[in-house]
Design a protein around this nucleic acid. Sequence first.
DNA 1: CGACAGATTGAGTAGGGTCAAAGAATGTGG
DNA 2: CCACATTCTTTGACCCTACTCAATCTGTCG
Lengths: 227, 227
Amino acid sequence: MPDCAHCPVRDHSLCAGMKAEDLVHVSERTDQLEAPAGQVLYFEGDAARFFFTIRRGVVRLVRSFPDGRRSVVGFLHAGDFFGGGFRRDVYDATVEAITPLEYCRIGITDLNELTEEFPELNRQLASMAADRLHAADDHIVLLSRKTAIEKVAAFLLASAEWTGKSSDFALPMARSDIADYLGLTIETVSRTMTRLIDHDIIELPTPQRVMIVDWPALKSLACPEAS
Amino acid sequence: MPDCAHCPVRDHSLCAGMKAEDLVHVSERTDQLEAPAGQVLYFEGDAARFFFTIRRGVVRLVRSFPDGRRSVVGFLHAGDFFGGGFRRDVYDATVEAITPLEYCRIGITDLNELTEEFPELNRQLASMAADRLHAADDHIVLLSRKTAIEKVAAFLLASAEWTGKSSDFALPMARSDIADYLGLTIETVSRTMTRLIDHDIIELPTPQRVMIVDWPALKSLACPEAS
DNA sequence: CGACAGATTGAGTAGGGTCAAAGAATGTGG
DNA sequence: CCACATTCTTTGACCCTACTCAATCTGTCG
């Protein structure tokens, strides 16, 4: 049985508001699992039977067209909670591990029973839904009204925040994931990164590692002020 | 005091799951209001104190940049529920009436008290959040991976569904709203409509009224198949 | 009827896409 | 441990879609 009391994301996920002594009720219904990079947790359209919490690693949420076009609707990190399909009974998007993953899984019916016993879970669920909705709106603004360089700058800043605002961090996802997230092609993502390097705003020690050299410049690109 | 039992959106909104005899508890905490077209219900960033339900009319949710760029993150119709800002205490977006509006308003603290008394409201809230999230993901896919004609076709189809899949319906919003929703300019929206007319797929008796002539063609444009 | 906002049309341009090739990085088997 | 294969990334040349700027048209309302 998982030891939720010592979970690394104890205070940043679903059970953040729960009393320590109640946690055991969550633990006994939760499976602790691992997955290698690349593994699919579930497919868009599958019958939705589980909720998931990431303890370590990164996943991508993907929507695909019949003709092969792909859109990454989001990246999720340690502490993030996803799955379900609340009213609808199918998953909204395909979820794939980008890095090796440690995660927890709980059945939808189990979670529903838990919310009856511990109504504070509802508050947590609602606030996570609100966060996701806010993130989705940010994404919509980014996609509809930002240029390539603004998109990439905003993405790099967000990535830095996921890793604790460090100036030197990993980009675990491939360029194709970034492109499908930003609504660009991989070529444009690559060219734009190069432009940022040429302007001495970032450095790329390896393709999967970023150093932010000029924070103010990156920020003003990501959130353009009135000219 | 509002008469929730005979509300036109009684079965399509927040209180859809409630028993008739409990509705009075909602009624006595709800204000029934009206607003003319163009009125702002609240601004992005305002302290969030209310939730809203539309009984009649259409609103737009707007996010703005400091430099004037604008993004319409969604349109909401009769039965839709919005406002709040669950965990955050400010509204996520500005909400403006597009048509004359009839709506209901309930205080956040009142709603919180109601959910304690009537936990089934939580289920309704969660499912509405899930619907909004699904819609946001659809919007993300549309913005990131669709061409202008696909975007406009998808928008017209969605508009037709809001009005009961009629072939002849009103477009209450201006071209600038459509443009800011689809991530295009008004000129491109206009040109694309003209293209659809030239191909005998739609007609525009007036700029604010659409007739769909060729449903299959419109559908195949909106959801492109594998070639 | 005239004025104004909103919508359409036109001409020219540029940002990002497409197609193609070369260059790293990682992994595999000998 | 190295050679090779594979995949991912970067760079280059060219093109097209959608944007910009500008004029005209249409519908609405005083």
